[in-house]
Amino acid sequence: MRKKSDSRVEESRYVYGLFSGRMRAQALLTALELRVFDHLSFPLSSEELSATLQCHPANTGALLDSLAAAELLEKKEGRYCNEQCADDLLNSESQNYIGKILLLMHRMSADVVSDMTRLVKDGPFADHSGFGNEEIWVDYARTVGNYHKGGMMQDIAGIVSGIEGFSSFGNMLDLGGGPGLYCIGIVSESESMKGVVFDRPGVLRVAEEFIAEYGMRDRISVKSGDYLADSIGEGYDLIWASSTLNFARSDLDRLMMKIHDALVPGGVFVSLAEGLTDEGTKPDFYVLENLSYALTGFNQVFRKGEIAGAMHRAGFVSVDSMTVETPMMPMEMDIARKKT
């Protein structure tokens, strides 16, 4: 039987651990900003690294000790070296680098984090003009594109290409497609399919860069507009939407009908989005990261089954749902088919 005193120690350490998370996160962000991990694929002393980075020697050593405590670095005989996960994910030379998206997520939430008490006490401020800032979304698209290139593009393309009838699909639409990497990956799984990436004009500049990089200009085009208000085209065999339907959550049924009508008979709509469970408290990563949006009045997250329900209401004859494990969190993929 566990002693009560032992339980109290465990509980206290859990809460203290939560509190120390703020320093873990800030140490990681500081290291990313200084590109610490880029220089520690091989062991260096704090003095050697501080000279390379032109940083304060003693404070560099304190930061490195903290990163070692967080098990991102190994310290041996006074020299520091990346642990495997840091070399794979936090070294900007790695194809799996996620540092850029971590820094972007930090920048997008920093103001809310610093003002959280006031927001909880007084409520959200009314200004959401940042959501209309084109340059923010351009930067976001480029950053997310690099994240998708780290393996997500290939994983998703593998799943979608397994959908019944995929080999006969001729045209696809990537709705709110951002950098267009998912469209590139999916189209690449077919010998003849062509694709359209639909998004804001500025964001599409990023998509065009990736389309050119992958040599897909002859098979993938772009279409600019607001999918809530503008035509999205028609005659598609496949429509794909990833983490974008949130902007239509308050009017999801109308958008779902538009998607349904844009498909040919027998066409397929695939959505990849969060799907909260446990009364909206899981996955913990997404709930916590969404807090910065929720506190400013933009809490448009989906519960598990919500998108599938809208698909049924729009008239899709079948909806299959599955959980997809991604590097950030588990996500819900809903696959709906239009009547033939």
Rank of each mutant, 00 (worst) to 15 (best):
K304E: 14
G61V: 00
Q95M: 11
I259S: 01
K194V: 13
E11T: 04
F19K: 12
G177Q: 01
A157T: 07
E209F: 10
L263R: 01
L53C: 06
E47L: 14
M172W: 08
L53W: 07
R249H: 06
E191F: 05
G17H: 13
D65Y: 06
S12N: 13
L291T: 11
K194C: 13
P57H: 12
L44W: 10
T143K: 01
Q84C: 00
M108E: 15
Q300L: 06
L64S: 01
Q26C: 04
E74T: 08
D87K: 05
S94R: 06
G17I: 04
A229T: 10
M257C: 07
W240Q: 05
S271F: 05
Q26P: 00
T52P: 00
F169I: 04
G225E: 14
Y182P: 01
L73E: 07
R22I: 14
E10S: 08
S188T: 11
A241E: 13
E208Y: 02
A126I: 02
Y236N: 04
F316Q: 03
M328E: 07
G150E: 09
V113A: 15
G195N: 03
F269G: 01
Y80V: 03
L18G: 00
N299P: 00
F131V: 00
D6K: 15
G145H: 09
E213A: 15
P124G: 08
G275Y: 02
L53M: 07
A51K: 15
Y293C: 09
A308S: 15
S167W: 05
M328G: 00
I101K: 11
G162I: 05
I335N: 02
Y14R: 15
M108F: 10
T60H: 01
L181T: 03
L102K: 02
L204K: 07
G21T: 07
I186G: 01
Y140S: 09
S192W: 06
M108I: 05
Y214S: 10
T323E: 12
V324E: 01
R249Y: 04
P201C: 10
E289H: 12
D122F: 08
W137M: 12
H56T: 05
E83N: 10
E189H: 05
G21F: 07
R107Q: 14
G309W: 09
M116L: 13
M322K: 13
S46C: 08
V270Q: 03
L291S: 10
G151Y: 11
K76D: 13
Y14E: 12
G225P: 02
I101Y: 08
L32C: 09
R337Q: 13
D261R: 12
I239Y: 06
I307N: 02
S161D: 03
H128G: 07
M152Y: 07
A229K: 15
L175M: 13
R337N: 05
F125K: 08
Y227L: 14
M172Y: 06
R24Y: 09
V36N: 09
R118S: 15
F247N: 06
R142M: 09
A308I: 01
H56F: 09
P330A: 10
S250D: 15
Y236F: 15
G145C: 10
M329F: 12
G215W: 11
E332Y: 04
